[in-house]
Computed example of a mutant assay.
Amino acid sequence: MDPFSHIPIRVLLVDSRQIVLWGLEKLINSESPRMETVGKASNGTDARRLARESQPNIVLLDLELGGERGVDLIPDLLKMGNFHIIVFTEIHDPTTIDVAIFNGARGVVYKEEPTPTILKAIQKVHDGELWLDRRTTGRVFINFLRTGQKLPVDPVAGKITALTRKERVIVNAFANEAGASNKKIAHTLGISEQTLRNHLTSIFSKLEITNRFDLFMFAKLHHHQFSVTGTRTESPASRL
């Protein structure tokens, strides 16, 4: 059995109202083992601390945190780890929503939407997609073009983009053969163990990891972003 097939999506909840946090926690945990709540915060200070300590995959963030503005919290949170932020709000003001996206949020869910929508948004954003309606998407991209700003950089996507095509093939091999030895993976890829070790040194550096287990985890959690071009009949060795 693949040891990484049931890794849950780790969700941090940030909302100023305890009743909302309680309801969201029940909802997320009801999806176990697909999802789990790893923390709850009702203010910016606790949100920063929990984001750093729990290293979630998704932060579900309210934009109204008492006297704090959730949109201003987004850049600080994103410095705490490699995760995505989904805005969870009652605010429909386009300017506020646009600022949240400019600051790095990957999705917007309104509190009046049905609970299946919340779960679907978490899954889709975790899979690397944006969760924005067409009107918001169009408005945001037009504003980016007008102001000359760059789109927010996804830190995980940035690391993956740094990999060469050969390195992506190797990462895929580790994801598909969890627990296999370097010798076995090198044989599968049709390369020498020394060549594989050389590639792994570069991969570890680019992904900011230190060992094979971390590589398995990274590859499994972000497998959707490790596409390798080529025909289906193409062998791993031919891609190297």
Rank of each mutant, 00 (worst) to 15 (best):
V71L: 11
R168C: 06
L196G: 01
T45M: 12
S32D: 06
K159H: 02
D72E: 15
H84Q: 15
L163H: 03
S238L: 15
D127L: 14
H92V: 14
P116E: 06
H187I: 11
N57R: 10
R168S: 02
F4W: 00
G70S: 11
V59I: 14
V38F: 01
L221P: 00
N143R: 13
T115H: 11
I7A: 13
N103P: 06
I203Y: 11
G179D: 01
I74T: 07
I170S: 02
E167K: 11
L13D: 07
P3E: 06
R135V: 11
S235K: 15
I118A: 12
H223M: 10
S30T: 03
Q149H: 15
F144L: 14
V20K: 00
F141W: 11
P8K: 03
V153H: 03
L78A: 08
N172T: 02
V153L: 09
N43T: 09
T115F: 07
I58E: 05
A105K: 06
R239T: 08
G230F: 08
K40R: 14
R106P: 04
R106V: 04
S30D: 10
P33E: 05
G230W: 07
P236L: 04
R212K: 13
V108A: 03
E90K: 09
S30F: 04
H222Q: 08
R34M: 12
L73F: 04
R197E: 15
A51K: 00
T195S: 12
N211I: 03
V20F: 05
I118Q: 01
V87Q: 00
G230P: 07
F218Q: 08
L189E: 00
N103M: 03
G107V: 01
S238W: 10
I58K: 01
K159S: 02
E234C: 07
L189Q: 06
V171F: 00
P155W: 08
F141Y: 12
L27H: 05
E68F: 09
E25F: 10
I122N: 02
D98G: 07
T164W: 04
P152K: 06
E53H: 05
T229L: 15
L65A: 09
L13K: 00
G128V: 08
I7R: 12
D93G: 03
L21K: 11
D133L: 05
Q123W: 13
I191R: 03
Y110D: 02
K124I: 08
V99F: 08
L73H: 01
I85N: 02
N82P: 07
T161C: 11
R134M: 11
R135M: 08
I7Q: 14
G148D: 02
V11L: 01
V156P: 07
P3H: 01
R146Q: 14
D76M: 11
Q18A: 04
Y110M: 13
T136S: 08
T195G: 08
G66R: 03
T229D: 09
T147A: 06
G23T: 06
I91M: 13
I122L: 03
E112Q: 14
L60G: 00
G148L: 04
G23V: 01
E193C: 09
I203R: 09
P152S: 07
L61Y: 00
